[in-house]
Simulated scan of single mutants.
Amino acid sequence: MEEQYPQALAKYLKAQGKSKADLSEFHRLLSHTNGPVIPIVNTVDEAGCPDNFTYINQNIYSDEVPRPCTPMFWCECTNGCCDGCECTKERNYDNRGLLLSMGDERIVECGPLCKCGDDCVNRVVQKGRKVVLELRRYPHKGWGVVAKQRLKKGTFVAEYVGEVITSDEAENRGFKDKAQGQTYLFDLDQEFVNDICDFSIDAKTHGNISRFFNHSCGPNMRTRSIYVEHRDPRLHRLAIFATRDIKAGEELTIDYSPSAVEGESVKGDPCHCGSSKCRKFMYF
């Protein structure tokens, strides 16, 4: 935890005073976050921590998944990456650490062998979450996440982490989870076409704060594939960035199925996102 214990406890007690549920176990789990303390508020019902949930800060890999080992090149810059450096040939961030492009391009950050130092402008996601968030219970939607500070367009918000599993295992889990009306699977297909992928991330039982981001048909964030330690396109990481300026107190959302086409995708539960672009239903 980045804050001193008395400050964290004060935030927790303030949030707990607003809540109807016993959130002590939830708070204990979220205290393991690498980043600012996350208050939890539930004034809607008595729901507490999800069953069998473990908070993690980085992906874990099932036994069937190979560990990524594709080598990265490294730079010899000793005071941040300089002009002409291979690491910044396709620059990802401005000098404030904000993402420059909202497109689909992959993001390659400086790796562990680079000599540019921790303050290099090309090291953002690898430093972890810096923004202040709150976990909040919503009617109809369940748990969601709120920004507790203003966020500029291009701000790195969180990495989507969980258990990295094979596509076969993801299909088996997805079938069961969709029958229960929920799934936390994210296919690692951003480097491929025709929805082909070998692996997925499942955050149902192991995940971080990003596991609780709700869906919106008009989201204010999006995911991007990112590489730090390797360049294996099958096993890229998933970073989530703000796609526009976000006000303090605004819910943070992503589109669970950005490529969904009505009539061609499987229709799920009714959507309660409230966006003017709402598709009325969740699609898988």
Rank of each mutant, 00 (worst) to 15 (best):
S19F: 10
Y93I: 05
D94V: 08
A8Y: 09
S24Q: 13
L23G: 01
E86C: 02
R96Q: 07
P39M: 14
T54N: 12
K20R: 11
R28T: 10
T43R: 14
A15T: 10
M72Q: 03
T70N: 00
P39Y: 15
S31W: 12
N92K: 01
Q7C: 14
N42E: 03
I38Y: 01
C77R: 02
N59K: 12
P66E: 08
D83H: 07
N57Y: 05
H32Y: 11
G84S: 12
A21R: 04
I40L: 13
W74F: 12
A47D: 01
Q7P: 01
F26T: 08
K14Q: 13
C81F: 07
D83R: 06
S62W: 11
Q58S: 13
E64G: 10
E76M: 13
P39V: 10
N92V: 07
W74G: 02
L9Y: 01
C85R: 00
E25N: 11
C82R: 14
N57D: 04
I56R: 02
E86L: 06
G17A: 14
E25G: 07
L13E: 15
I40K: 02
K14W: 09
P36Y: 08
D94E: 04
D83Y: 06
Q7A: 15
H32V: 08
N42Q: 06
C75W: 00
R67Y: 01
V37N: 05
K18N: 10
D22G: 05
N57A: 08
C77W: 02
L100H: 04
L23A: 05
N79K: 09
L98W: 05
N92H: 03
Y55L: 15
N95P: 02
R67N: 03
C49E: 15
T78L: 11
D51G: 10
G97T: 11
D63Q: 12
K11F: 12
F53H: 02
R67A: 05
K18V: 14
V41M: 09
P68K: 00
C75E: 01
N52K: 14
P39C: 12
L100K: 07
L98Y: 08
T33Y: 01
T88A: 09
Y12R: 06
V37G: 03
P6R: 09
T33D: 02
L30T: 09
L23V: 07
L99I: 10
L100S: 06
M72S: 02
R28G: 07
W74D: 06
D45Y: 15
T88C: 09
K14P: 06
L30W: 04
N59C: 13
Y61H: 10
S19H: 11
S62E: 09
F26Y: 11
P50H: 04
Q16D: 11
S31T: 13
C85I: 02
L9H: 01
V65I: 01
G35K: 00
D45I: 15
R96K: 05
K89C: 09
Y12T: 07
V65K: 00
I60R: 06
V44G: 07
P36Q: 09
I38G: 00
S62L: 12
V41K: 05
C49W: 13
T54C: 11
C75N: 02
Y5P: 00
S19W: 10
N95K: 09
G17W: 12
C81S: 10
N34G: 05
E25P: 07
Y61D: 08
V37Q: 06
I40V: 13
